[in-house]
């Protein structure tokens, strides 16, 4: 049952991914992305990464999706988007071929590379016993001990990006310009 669910969700995630890159309207693109996130979240749950599933749904399907939807709604892209974007005809065969080859090559390399490198042992694995398995506590312990520096750097990154967003999205005050 779980296997069937995994494959069904995989197919759904891929279909939503195709929806993301082929959607005509940005809104449909963002909603397809949401579908893909939710499918992946359920896959994480099936693979017993409960914490990651929760983070996926909260951060991706919640926060990031709200940001995307907010921007799409704010900018009223419906009217702007008529213009000749529509990829396939304008872009020309050459560009599409190059893009497909690059994408396929990268995907294949990532697949083979990760498979081979993961087959080896890797950095000393942190393994916990299943009977004492408390994913959140274990992940938190790891974050605050072995990866403390990375964790603090990540916090710094978040603060920096927050400030950057405020600076970027702030309306520029030009005293003599007209009110937009």
């Amino acid at each position: 049952m779980a296997e069937f669910l995994f494959y069904a969700l995989s197919i759904a995630a891929v279909l939503f991914g195709i929806g993301v890159i082929s959607a005509k309207q940005p809104l449909m693109c963002v909603l397809s992305l949401l579908g893909s996130f939710v499918c992946l979240g359920v896959i994480y749950l099936l693979a017993q990464f409960q914490f990651m599933a929760a983070a996926q749904i909260l951060v991706y399907a919640g926060a990031i999706m709200v940001l995307f939807l907010f921007v799409v709604m704010l900018l009223d892209l419906g009217n702007v988007e008529e213009l000749k974007e529509n990829s396939m005809r304008i872009l020309g065969k050459k560009r599409i071929t190059v893009a497909v080859v690059v994408a396929g090559g990268l995907a294949l390399t990532s697949l083979l590379g990760t498979r081979d490198s993961m087959a080896s042992a890797g950095p000393e694995p942190v393994v916990v016993r299943p009977d004492a398995y408390d994913p959140v506590a274990e992940i938190a312990t790891l974050l605050f001990t072995r990866y403390l520096l990375a964790f603090e750097a990540a916090g710094l990154l978040l603060v920096a990006s927050m400030v950057a967003v405020m600076v970027l999205a702030k309306r520029q005050r030009e005293p003599l310009s007209d009110q937009r």
Partner: peptide, 9 residues
């Protein structure tokens, strides 16, 4: 015998 945690981290 156990779960690997590096992936989730």
């Amino acid at each position: 015998d156990g779960f690997n945690l590096l992936g989730p981290v």
